[in-house]
């Protein structure tokens, strides 16, 4: 633990450089640049809202469907993009790992942080929707960072896990694409959990993503303080996955170099 902190301090500059590199490269040639981080989630959510509320007649009683949609998608999009990038980060940086010594965990970590910047930017469209749909604010919004931190730790754990598995099993890139699609539908992002059978709804509560989304929606849409159970659900799922991911990564990282 003490070692980790010394290491993190030593490599914080490298971490910062890697995150900045990704950020610069992402927007380098685009005309609208960073503005895309705001526009993209807004437009995507708008399209989905039109399709699901008009074509499929989905609705969420008592709350704006648009606000319902974006409050879940903001979190899920972070998870989906960050875990995907983290998964390929070790394989993509073999050229470096092979030539210079640096702690390998820095690659998934830098991806989770880089997408985190986009996540923070995507809070702007979220709050725009909250205001324009008349959903309104409340004091509990101050508790939201708790669920963001849990989401980050969970995603980081998944990133560690996936990136080390991907080194040994390149099929993972395809498999995970399918898993993410299934996961999108197994998380009540577009529909209300009350629309599905109670049994399935019970199982769904073991989905960590549901925990974070539910926590955020309790505050944003229903203006309630999350229960102790919700607080615990977020923390336990995040820490458990982080511990698992870290363990797998640590156990396998010395073998990465043989699978270049």
């Amino acid at each position: 633990m003490k070692n980790l902190i010394i290491n993190l301090k030593k490599y914080s500059f490298l971490l910062k450089q890697l995150v900045m590199r990704d950020f610069k490269v992402k927007y380098k040639r685009s005309f609208l640049g960073v503005l895309w981080s705001l526009l993209y989630p807004l437009l995507m959510t708008a399209v989905m809202a039109v399709v699901f509320s008009n074509v499929f007649k989905f609705s969420t009683p008592g709350v704006s469907y648009l606000a319902y949609l974006i409050s879940g998608l903001t979190l899920f999009n972070y998870f989906s993009e960050a875990s995907n990038l983290a998964m390929s980060s070790v394989v993509a940086n073999f050229g470096l790992i092979n030539k210079v010594y640096m702690p390998k965990y820095i690659f998934p970590l830098s991806k989770a942080l880089f997408v985190g910047i986009n996540f923070l930017l995507s809070l702007i469209p979220l709050y725009l929707v909250i205001i324009f749909t008349g959903t309104g604010l409340n004091i509990y919004h101050l508790l939201l960072p708790y669920s963001y931190v849990c989401l980050f730790l969970f995603t980081l754990g998944m990133g560690f896990l996936l990136s080390s598995v991907a080194v040994f099993l390149r099929d993972m890139f395809y498999i995970y694409g399918i898993i993410i699609t299934i996961w999108t539908y197994l998380t009540p992002l577009m529909y209300d959990i009350n629309m599905i059978s109670p049994r399935l709804a019970f199982v769904m509560k073991f989905n960590p993503m549901y925990q974070y989304v539910n926590f955020a929606r309790t505050i944003i849409l229903y203006h309630n303080c999350p229960t102790a159970g919700q607080f615990a659900g977020c923390a336990v799922s995040a820490l458990a996955v982080l511990a698992l991911g870290t363990l797998v990564f640590k156990k396998t990282q010395d073998k990465f170099i043989y699978y270049v």
Partner: peptide
């Protein structure tokens, strides 16, 4: 370790940005 120089260069970044990036990879402080 001068094993393979410029291993950490990102072709899309400028020379200035790459000096910092590659320096960080070599373990230099800011």
């Amino acid at each position: 370790p001068m094993i393979e120089l410029g291993a950490g260069f990102d072709p899309q970044l400028t020379a200035r940005e790459n000096i910092y990036l590659n320096g960080a990879i070599m373990g230099y402080t800011e």
